[in-house]
Write a protein that binds this DNA or RNA. Structure first.
Lengths: 187, 187
DNA sequence: CTCTAAACTAAGCAAATGCTTAGATTTAGA
DNA sequence: TCTAAATCTAAGCATTTGCTTAGTTTAGAG
C-alpha cells in the first residue's frame, strides 16, 4: 500500500540511548540525535513523538541492556558474594572504551532531580526499587540474616550502587575497587 | 572619579550559586541568573566575564559555605564518630525547605563528567580530595587503625558521601539515615 | 559646578534549541 | 501500470541561548 520504514526503531533507539547516557538529557540536542541515529528529524518525531519520547524509549532500552548482568545476579545463589560480583559487573558495563558513563538511571536522577518529569522520575524510582528488591532476594540466601537486617542492607547496597556513578566520573578504577571491597566488609 | 557598583559581588554570587545548585550548569540560563542576582546581564559580564566565570565563583562560594560543617569536623576529636556526625550535618546542609539539592560539587561532577571543562573538573577533584584527607585526619584519632586501613576507609567514606547526592534526590530521609548507619557499622 | 570615567539600561546579535511543514520519493495494491 | 498512502528530504518556524553594543545615568575629583 505504501512505503515501509527504512530503519529499525530498536536499532536507532540503541544509538539514541548511547548519546543520552554519555551527555545527559538536556545536553543531547535533536540535531545530535538525528546524526547519531542516522535518520531525519521528521522520522524521529514520526516514530517517537518528541525528544521526551525518544528519552523514555532509551531508558527502557537501557533496562533491557543491563538485564544481562541483573539476570546473572538472579541466577546466582551465593548471597552477598553474588551481589559483590554484580558491583564489579556493573563497573565493566558502565565503562565504554575508557569513557566512564556511570549509570543512565543515576545520571538522570542527578540531572532532573525532583523537578523532573513525573513519568520519567517514576520509571527511575521503579528501577531503583527493583534492584533493591533483587539485592534483598539474594541477601535472603545468607541464612543467618533476619528480615530487618536484610531490608537495611538491601537499601544500603542500593545507595552504594548509586554512589558508584558520580564516583566513577572522577576516580580511578583502583579507588572504585577499594570502595567496593570496603562496602562489603561489614555485611 | 566615576560611579560605584550598586551591588555586592559576594551577595549576587550567593544567589547565583543557589540557582546552579538547584538546576545545574546547563539548565541555568543567563536570563535566570539576571533575574535571581537582581542585576543586568551587562553587570554580570562586567564582574565575572561570562557564565563560566559566574559558575566558578559559585563553586568557590559553595566551598566557603560548606566550611561551617567541615570546620566543625576539623575541631571534632572523636574519630569516626565525628565523621558520622558530618554525614548528618551534610543532610541538613543540602536540604533547603524540603528541596533536596544534593551537593553542588557532586551535581557538577555528574553533569559535566570527564568531558567537562578541565579548570572546573580540577576544582571538583580537589574538593573531593580535601574531604577525603579530612576524613583520614579524623580516622587517625582512632588509635587502633593502621595507615593502609585509614586510607581505604577515607576513600570509602568519600565515595559514600558522593553517593548521598543521587540518593537524596529520590529517597526518603529515613532511608538516607539507615544508609548512614549501615555505612558506619564496621568502621 | 563641571567634566570624565565608570556603571547602568535595554535593545539586539548570531547561533542553537525543539518542532513543523511543504514537497519530492518510494512502494504496494488495484 | 497507475494511484494512493506512507516515507523521506530539507527548509523554515518561533523561542531561547550566551554575549555585545549603543546610549544614558551617576558619582566623585578638580
Amino acid at each position: 500500500m505504501a512505503r515501509s520504514k527504512q530503519y529499525n526503531e530498536g536499532e536507532v533507539i540503541e544509538k539514541a540511548m548511547g548519546l543520552f547516557w554519555k551527555n545527559g538529557y538536556e545536553n543531547t540536542s535533536v540535531r545530535m540525535l538525528e546524526k547519531e541515529m542516522g535518520i531525519n528529524q521528521f522520522s524521529i518525531y514520526a516514530s517517537f513523538g518528541n525528544k521526551h519520547g525518544v528519552f523514555l524509549e532509551s531508558i527502557k532500552y537501557y533496562k533491557k541492556k543491563i538485564k544481562i548482568i541483573t539476570d546473572k545476579l538472579k541466577r546466582s545463589n551465593n548471597g552477598v558474594v553474588g551481589i559483590k560480583q554484580y558491583f564489579y559487573d556493573f563497573l565493566d558495563f558502565s565503562m565504554d572504551d575508557n569513557c566512564k558513563k556511570g549509570c543512565l538511571v543515576a545520571n538522570t536522577v542527578n540531572e532532573l532531580g525532583e523537578n523532573g518529569d513525573p513519568v520519567i522520575m517514576d520509571e527511575l524510582l521503579n528501577f531503583f526499587n527493583e534492584i533493591r528488591e533483587l539485592f534483598a532476594y539474594n541477601l535472603k540466601q545468607d541464612i543467618e540474616k533476619d528480615e530487618p537486617t536484610i531490608q537495611k542492607q538491601a537499601n544500603y547496597l542500593g545507595i552504594a550502587m548509586l554512589g558508584l556513578t558520580p564516583a566513577s566520573k572522577i576516580l580511578s578504577k583502583k579507588q572504585l575497587e577499594d570502595y567496593i571491597e570496603t562496602t562489603f566488609l561489614n555485611l
